[in-house]
């Protein structure tokens, strides 16, 4: 300001002269600061056109509030976006839950061999990001003598599985009946459907990642950057709530492949499971496989103490370790 350090109190009575002097004095500073602001924001020129929401997308309502027409136009918009980005004509639908159905998953830990086919089939089916890698299923290699998953190894890399001294525990979304992720979401972008599947409206999520912090099963994933999927790997059978392509900055998660399962099919992870360790079905049907398992097997849920009431059950069915000799190796020589 001033070169002399001696304070100078010039009393100004006229507002105008105050302004004029001030303008001369500080106009430069303001102009400089404005320029620097614009400069600082200049990386935004790299912003992908797809990242800037169109009016249509900006005004799109919450999934539960959309009427038929609005949903149709939203699906059409997704179709156009996929066509534009990958040059693929997808079939995008909104598959709704059916009455009288509640899905339950059961996983036989005696049978899982840790081959990770489910992990990769899931990635293929659900159009998950290949770079950076994003997977819904984690298979843990557990040392015998514990079910404490903190002792599991996520990155086992053996020539062959299963290993004699370990068992394998795949973990994915447990579709809890009292889901903490649903509770914490500030904008109701995630909720549990009537058939027990917890879904996300990817167009509603604000990306605060509170649900990711809340999930005791580490089942939620965030798109830290724009997901990359090669066009050849796109699964064109898409649905609004499950496997349509996601954008950066939103959460995603396992939906029990609802675009398949709501139409009576099995989820992709189950279809590829070579051993039949994975079981899926409608628990409201007493004759379904999962009902039979819940009735007859000693099932347990992971981290029961957190009280989230998972719809994903684990069970064992052999009495002797599969590695002991050859006779028991099948686990069937009971």
């Amino acid at each position: 300001m001033t070169e002399d350090t001696k304070p100078e109190f010039a009393e100004v009575t006229s507002e105008r002269s105050f302004n004029r002097r001030g303008f001369l004095r500080n106009g430069l500073t303001v102009v400089g600061a404005m320029t620097a602001c614009v400069g600082a924001l200049s990386p935004l020129r790299e912003l992908d056109g797809d990242d800037i929401p169109s009016v249509e997308k900006f005004l799109q309502r919450h999934y539960k509030e959309m009427n038929g027409d609005e949903m149709a136009s939203a699906l059409d918009r997704i179709r156009r976006e996929v066509k534009k980005r990958w040059d693929i004509d997808p079939i995008v639908r909104d598959v709704r839950a059916k009455d009288g159905v509640e899905f339950v998953y059961a996983l036989n830990l005696s049978r899982c061999i840790g081959c990770r086919k489910c992990v990769h089939a899931c990635v293929e089916e659900n159009n998950q990001s290949r770079s950076p890698e994003l997977q819904y299923i984690r298979v843990l290699e557990m040392p015998r003598g514990t079910t404490d998953i903190e002792k599991g190894n996520h990155h086992y890399d053996r020539p062959t599985v299963p290993d004699d001294d370990h068992f394998y525990m795949p973990i994915q979304c447990h579709q809890c009946a009292d889901a903490p992720c649903v509770k914490v979401c500030p904008v109701e972008a995630t909720w549990t459907e009537s058939d027990g599947i917890t879904v996300i409206d990817y167009d509603w999520c604000i990306g605060c990642r509170y649900c990711e912090a809340a999930c005791p099963y580490w089942a939620r994933r965030f798109n830290y950057t724009k997901p990359e999927i090669p066009a050849a790997d796109i699964n064109p059978e898409m649905s609004y709530l499950s496997n349509r392509p996601r954008e950066k900055g939103v959460m995603e998660k396992c939906t029990f492949c609802l675009h398949r399962t709501r139409e009576g099919k099995m989820p992709a992870c189950l279809e590829v499971c070579p051993t039949g360790a994975r079981k899926f079905g409608n628990v409201l049907d007493p004759d379904s496989e999962v009902s039979q398992i819940l009735k007859n097997k000693r099932v347990f849920v992971l981290k029961e103490e957190v009280g989230t009431l998972p719809r994903f059950f684990y069970y064992f069915d052999e009495r002797y370790p599969r590695s002991e000799g050859t006779a028991e190796a099948t686990g069937e020589a009971k």
Binding site: P132, H155, D157
Partner: peptide, 25 residues
């Protein structure tokens, strides 16, 4: 009848930074 062993498919590499770390001590 013993179920054969498989070569497992690649493990997770979800980390963008650094190398995957180990647990399972």
């Amino acid at each position: 009848p013993a179920y054969p062993t498989y070569e497992p498919l690649p493990g997770p590499n979800t980390l963008r930074m650094g190398t995957p770390l180990q647990s399972g001590h």
